[in-house]
């Protein structure tokens, strides 16, 4: 089983991104995803900057993947994505069917990211026909769902055509809107957001009026209030044939998580998780915010 470092979903200053990926080079990850997936207004790094970081990282012995935007609304956004897709060097993670369309035109393989709605084997087959070589399961699906789906992929003789990756640690990306909730929280219109989400390297916490952590606001994205943590499920994932576990790049803590997850695979133990910080409900087919 391999471990990946997912793309950072937050908006960080350029120097922080660069220093993060300097450290990522020496991390325990086998695969590194990078790129802006949430908001096209976040331009601390432009296309060439991301590709430069990717080139720098490719000197390590890791596979480098460029992740692309999830909600694309304007021709300019699609144009920028096309440049990334056509980079010539790095594998692409498609987070919208527009990227799938472009990769198919370019006749290049791609990773179907967690925001592509692939819930069944028929959809997997459609995506395989387009050039998918790796499938990241939508975050709301369970271990049972995955198990059934992978068995069917075996039966249909397509399982060997793709790798399966599961989002295993970090704040979950849950929803995308036209509205920027961080700008709204500062009473700013989106068109004059002043890039305020850069002030919140881990997003803004949104609690119920009883203080229960409900969601994290991250620009136009809404995330889980708790960090998803499948460390106690990693063995099961391995036995189901999951090829890659994704550790999301929430912060530099992700590097420690990569070490912990790898260790857990070799020396499994039942780790105590925090009820007010962590969740694993989706995997267990209950409310995502619950801890089984």
């Amino acid at each position: 089983m391999k471990f990946s470092l997912g793309p950072s979903l937050f908006f960080w200053p350029k120097h922080q991104v660069e220093s993060f990926y300097q450290k990522a080079k020496d991390s325990k990850s086998d695969i590194i995803y990078l790129g802006e997936t949430v908001c096209s207004k976040r331009r601390e790094l432009r296309v060439k900057d991301w590709l430069n970081v990717a080139k720098e990282l490719s000197q390590s012995n890791k596979q480098i993947v460029i992740s692309t935007m999830t909600l694309l609304e304007s021709p300019a956004e699609v144009q920028t994505m096309r440049k990334l897709c056509d980079n010539g060097d790095f594998l692409i993670e498609a987070n919208d069917l527009s990227a799938v369309q472009i990769m198919q035109e370019l006749k290049m393989p791609f990773v179907a990211g967690p925001a592509i709605n692939c819930y069944n084997v028929s959809t997997l087959k459609v995506l395989l026909n387009q050039g998918m070589i790796r499938w990241v399961m939508p975050v709301e699906l369970s271990g049972d769902w995955l198990k059934t789906l992978l068995i069917q992929a075996e039966q249909e003789n397509v399982r060997h055509l793709f790798e399966c990756e599961v989002f295993s640690w970090g704040y979950l990306p849950l929803a995308y809107s036209a509205r920027c909730f961080t700008a709204r929280s500062e009473d700013k219109p989106k068109d004059d957001c002043q890039y305020c989400c850069i002030k919140y390297p881990l997003g803004r916490k949104m609690n119920s009026r009883e203080g229960e952590r409900v969601f994290v606001l991250n620009g136009i994205q809404t995330m889980s209030g708790y960090q998803y943590n499948l460390i106690n499920e990693i063995e099961q994932m391995n036995s189901l044939g999951v090829d890659i576990a994704r550790i999301s790049a929430d912060s530099e803590i992700a590097f420690e998580k990569l070490i912990e997850f790898k260790k857990q695979l070799i020396e499994p133990s039942n780790l105590q998780l925090s009820k007010v910080e962590e969740c694993n409900g989706y995997w267990h087919k209950i409310a995502g915010m619950s801890l089984a």
Binding site: T70, L71, A115, N117, Y119, P138, V139, E140, L141, L172, L174, A175, Y176, S177, A178, R179, V214, F215, T222, S224, G281, Y282, K285, I286, A287, G288, M289, S290
Partner: peptide
């Protein structure tokens, strides 16, 4: 619906049941 439809898991995060599934 203020979220991009089909890409909103807020309901399943809170209840286990989403519009998608």
């Amino acid at each position: 619906c203020i979220m991009s439809e089909g890409r909103c898991y807020l309901s399943s995060y809170m209840t286990g049941e989403s519009p998608n599934t």
